[in-house]
Amino acid sequence: MSHLNQASASEVCVRSPEKSISWLQNFGMWLANNKLLLVLIACSLLMLAPFLWTVGLSLKSNQELMLGASAVFHFPYTLNNYADIFQNSQVFRWLANSLIVSIGMTFWVLILSSLAGYAFARLEFPFKKIIFVIILMGLAVPEQAVIMARHQIFSALEMHNSYVGLILPGLSAPFGVFLMTQFFKAIPPELDEAATLDNANKFQIFWYVLLPLTLPAQATLGILTFLTSWNDYFWPLISATEQEMYTLTIGIASSQQNFAQSEGLGFLASQAIFSALPIILVYIFFQKHIVTAVAGGGVK
């Protein structure tokens, strides 16, 4: 552990520089804290083990893995499984589809949820209570319960195999509205009052005064929506039935030769890693921001 950690670890227990606490006590706390830290690091390694195991599998030839997964621990390693993924020329098309759908969904969820959240937190309008309660009840609706009806609605409107068809169902998730409402409520009302005195209208207050303050919440919701959309499986499976409209999840699943996955443990692992890769990369690069955002955007 670096000195930096020692400092910050001890800082927690004693936020203010209380000089009355003796050096000895301080050291004891540091030790206690670092013991905790060590345990945590051990735990996080445990947390990572499944990941590493899968990465290991993805770097082994399927033939070798047929003889047992313990082959992971020794040479040779190969990138063939990843090369096999690119055998399918449409993989980049699917990647693009996934990006378009996930970004589109994220964008629209943020817009719709912020607008609604603001109204529920700040404005009075007819049937407000009942509408809010109904939307909250929507949280309890499982996707499988509505998916066939949705499918038929989209059929009637001929919206399958389109980006709109893939994005629209995701926009109905009530969680965003709920989160944004809570967040808008937490903003001190004095801010709007000041703006009202300046003769700003409701939309201006929303747009210029409050929205910028909700950025952490936007980031939280945005990340969660993006993740959900990226990993979505069931709706794209039955809505995008043309290969050009497959998302990455569906496309990769369709390239699997058979349900008999035995021959392809390594291939399967590489698919898993590959389809998670864009997200993992984004995550690694923005780790700090994401963590702060999710943390900062939490409901107060």
Binding site: I111, L112, S113, L115, A116, Y118, A119, F120, R122, L123, E124, F125, P126, F127, K128, I131, I134, I135, G138, V141, A145, V146, I147, M148, A149, R150, I153, L168, P169, L171, S172, P174, V177, P189, D192, E193, T196, K202, F206
Partner: peptide, 29 residues
């Protein structure tokens, strides 16, 4: 917020979400 009386403006903010919500969840339900 001070002086905000019941008005339909608020509903306007909720409407976009509400339409999607009704079409995608309420009607199927």
């Amino acid at each position: 917020v001070k002086s905000s009386r019941t008005s339909w403006t608020g509903l306007l903010f909720v409407l976009p979400f509400l339409i999607v919500f009704i079409a995608m969840i309420v009607i199927p339900l």
